[in-house]
Amino acid sequence: MITMNKNYFEIKRAGINTTFQDQGRSNLYHIGIPFSGAMDNRNFQISNKLVGNKTNSPVIEFAYQGPLLKYFGDNIKCAITGDVKFVIKKNNNDIEGNCYQSFTLENGDEIDIMTTNKSVYGYLAISGKFNLEYQWSSCSINTKANIGANNGKRMKDAQKIYISKINKNLNDKKLNYINTKIEKIRVIKGTNFNYFSDKGKNIFFDKEFVVSKLSDRMGMRLDGPKIENIVDTNIKSEGLIKGVIQVPADGNPIIMLSDHGTIGGYPKIGVVISADYDKLVQLTPGSKIKFQEVELSSAETLFKLYDLETQNLISQI
């Protein structure tokens, strides 16, 4: 055990919402467990490829302010993706960190992930294996149900993160990539679209909404003009998926994100298309967004293009 755990990070500052995430868990909606998994799938996959891992390996996901980690052990490669400001501290020298570029940590070095610039989530991958517990084939932490690694809880100050295996002799890797911000969120009309008045429908597709502070891995709340319901502000409770936009009685939309409740009873005005999900989750509170309607067939094509672009980026590494 001692030799296995001789490589580890000590968490000197945990950050706001730091968790382990992988591709998430499937086929559990019917018992009330959502996918979870990395919020921004593209950045998650790229971070792994930069350190020579399989693209679905567990990584550390952080939101807004990330962790300050001190490393003990043999040399290890790391990579950070997203739009992240961080420094690597070596013998009291601060070296400005670059995203999308692997770097080496030596015994005693620190990574200080200060902030995500105008975005929410960032990823830290290592050229090795975190020593993690799995539930339903995934280590993804769901803090609401306390499922996944670390007893399903976000990381805390002073705790240690053990690394069970390091892949040595890796070349440094780099990708030229800039995250772009999304201006319009494309949606397909929801199954209760006709619950809303003509005025409400027009507001939904014409007006600006603002991302509220009450947003997390479960959902994104929006403020803006109220969307009027003319049929019923409740439906018989039924399944939800990520990207569903529900409008409760107060007329303010809520978008379901990766840790969402699996069943809900508010009318569904729309569903965010799969191609726009990674960019949607990166919108910070205060960001302005507009919705744009697309047809199913366009949404399918847009996803194919987005996925192809992701695969191209990964193959460039």
Partner: peptide, 16 residues
């Protein structure tokens, strides 16, 4: 990749 039965609906999620 997921099935959600409810009172009178069934939602079938798939990998696009």
């Amino acid at each position: 990749n997921n099935l959600t039965p409810s009172y009178n609906k069934l939602i079938i999620s798939f990998d696009l």
